[in-house]
Amino acid sequence: MSTLVIAEHDNVNLKPATLNTVAAANVIGGPVHILVAGNACQSVADEAAAVDGVEKVILADDSAYENQLAESTANLIQSISANYSHILAPATTFGKNVLPRLSALLDVQQISEITEVVSDDTFKRPIYAGSCIATVKSSDSIKVITVRATAFDPVNASGGSASVESISADGVSDLSTFVNEEIAQSDRPELTAASIVISGGRGMQSGDNFHLLETIADKLGAAVGASRAAVDAGFVPNDYQVGQTGKIVAPDLYIAVGISGAIQHLAGMKDSKVIVAINKDEDAPIFQVADYGLVADLFNALPELAEQL
């Protein structure tokens, strides 16, 4: 029994969610290998080899994997899958794109977004926007799993000395091709990796008013997020969205501003260590999950908060 973890990376650095995924693999038990599929990505393989507890890194360095599109990546993983009892990837847009495709190629029912490993075939995962937690047992010979990163503490990025084995491209597909990417540039930490997140909802009234949150974010070294309502209203782009259908965060401190607290939003942040809610509606459901609630008009409270930090 051994586990293959699919590395998430940008051809330069290993993404932190990979470390949480390795942590889940460690709970399953058995040797852990990491697959790095990319282009000119030796630095990622070196980083992966240094990850604590990893036995082997498999490197597929080929222009076909430059953008890690689903078709070629799934075919590659399939070509080496026979060696593994478990194949894991982080439940990011990358993992969610590639793994179900792999799973169908292997004729396996994937288990999505696990939050706990009960045993090597039994896992816990949230359903219905996290309203319930299901415990599921898989009878498939290979378990294909995506891992909710916030549910597992990352393993150490250093201390390991895995061997690196290179493999050639296999099953390269031309069904889809990369055109371009617009990656949001920000000096603030990434939403899913930040230790403090401040999010705005429909109560922010406009995208311009998000600067009130940004001022505070910069003082706290926080990331800025948003509820689906704020994204739907066009205040901010979708990659700000925290919730059932957006990003899942669990920072040390989550500040929800002008967010009513629909179950779909709570699904994305209720595992935060400390939750603060600022809302002028004292009956807003967000107060039911908040450790500290402040009933106030955010347009008064935010400038005051910025001043006191």
């Binding site: 996290g130 309203s131 319930c132 937690i133 415990t135 209720k270 999950v289 450790d291 609630g293 402040l294």
Partner: peptide, 19 residues
């Protein structure tokens, strides 16, 4: 391929305070 063993509520958060 999957057997549902149980469904439970997520752990509840401790009640907070209003400042």
């Amino acid at each position: 391929r999957i057997e549902l063993l149980s469904v439970e509520l997520p752990p509840a958060r401790q009640e907070g305070i209003k400042v």
